[in-house]
Nucleic acid binder design. Structure first.
Lengths: 254, 254
DNA sequence: TGTAGAAAGTGGCATAGACCACTTCTCAGG
DNA sequence: CCTGAGAAGTGGTCTATGCCACTTTCTACA
């Protein structure tokens, strides 16, 4: 086991050296070149490269080449107490509303929001993009009583939480669940990734100072672009933060 | 894009059907058989199977065959307030102590525990196994003042938190960070997985009722065996839970 | 009757080659 | 000077084939 008998491992180790000695965004030799250098076949090289692409260390681009993945950017999604900012990474975020309706909560959402299934809620599904590239799907559910006159524009704009505060709703946040998952067909289509691509699912239940559930969010984030770090720090100053480390953009060059 | 032109995708879809129609643990046709049935080459079949193995839907066993992965078992790791149980999944857990010492906290750990770098702590590194199979690495750091007379046996046994309570330390728990990572060389060796295998890293900082940090834990869990679901529920009854969904054992049969 | 060994079936690794799709660059023609 | 066509280079997919390693089963011998 000590020696690297497998050619595939030998190739992988060679690639790891290249990755360590090259700056982010630098190209590595073409697959056919690596074949000659290491005296292995192309499928073997491709297999090794694929492994490192899956772990996020390399990036492949069709007619261009293979590159060392760029460093990840840390962004803060939720910060401080009672104030929330929308996730923003090193790029231009925009939202595209896919669906918007005022509907009964239903069993699943009603249970989470502690409403009867017949209670009315605002429902909005939106696609979030960075620099025009799909990044996440968000499904928001807000009880109608929280914001009776909520408009589409209110939910679309980043000022949603400020609007709530104007209504006397002081939000406290609870990240309820974060888990790795894979995309289903519709999610894959909307996010422009393959079916079964790794993704991150989170459910967030937002509570106000009086213990009322004021928002339930269900999100699917592209796993090839995001890493989740969830922090809950108790102690002197209560504070919840969720950092999303994102690698943004297809351009491997700085 | 609508049609499945790629053979690889056709094979994958066929496999997904098999997975849905077969119970967990059931074998799927041999690779060479699938080649004939679907009129594709073996590398193509292998590529599709590999994708589903990576996403955890299939399990391969060398001389035996390929099987539908068994359902995941949900286990509760932390439950209730002020009481903590060690993670236990559908199997026999045991701990193997790798290292144990009373040492200065150092800069990194000291900062987390709010101690001076020179302050003494108990340090213990242990390997956790399920049914004899390595599952996780845990690195515990406990300030010496919390439990002056702490013995190796205390830390090894599951009664650690009860022991603390006897000392008048009422623990409150905060899951600080959960993130996907990959194994480095030493971790891979200890966990019996390949280098760069997917893994879950968490850091846990335990705080008592007076706001003192009483424990800092740094853990590496095998990503091929675990899924993390972190829950923080505010509301009527404050309660933190962390569920670990584990698939245990190599035996795909019930 | 019991056991050792062969045989068959499985996944694991690797090769050589072909063709396609996409990107970039170059160079000739306007 | 600009533009467009083509060449060259890249990764993407697939085939056909061979051999190895591991597991299970069955057979033949003691």
């Amino acid at each position: 086991m000590g020696e690297a008998i497998l050619k595939r491992e030998r190739v992988r180790d060679h690639l790891l050296e290249l990755i360590e000695t090259h700056p982010a965004g630098a190209p590595i030799p073409a697959e056919r070149v690596l074949c000659q250098q290491l005296s292995v076949s192309r499928p073997t090289v491709r297999s090794a490269v694929e492994e490192l692409v899956n772990t996020g260390l390399l990036v492949r681009q069709h007619g261009r080449g293979t590159f060392v993945a760029r460093a990840k950017i840390t962004q803060e999604m939720v910060s401080g107490t009672g104030s929330m900012s929308l996730p923003q990474a090193g790029g231009t975020w925009e939202s595209r509303v896919l669906e918007h309706a005022r509907i009964p909560a239903g069993a699943r959402v009603g249970r989470r929001l502690r409403l009867s299934p017949a209670a009315e809620i605002h429902y909005i599904a939106r696609l979030r993009l960075v620099d025009g590239e799909p990044m996440a799907l968000e499904y928001l559910h807000v009880p109608a009583f929280v914001a009776p006159g909520l408009t589409l524009h209110d939910m679309e704009s980043g000022d949603f939480y400020e609007r709530l505060r104007e209504h006397g709703v002081h939000v406290l946040e609870a990240v309820q669940s974060i888990e790795p998952t894979v995309t289903n067909e519709s999610e894959a289509a909307l996010l422009s990734v393959p079916v079964l691509a790794p993704a991150l699912l989170f459910e967030r239940l937002t509570t106000d100072a009086e213990g009322r559930q004021v928002e339930y969010v269900h999100s699917i984030y592209r796993g090839d672009r995001y890493r989740i770090v969830s922090r809950l720090t108790l102690g002197d100053s209560p504070r919840n933060t969720v950092d999303v480390q994102a690698r943004v953009g297809n351009d491997p060059l700085a």
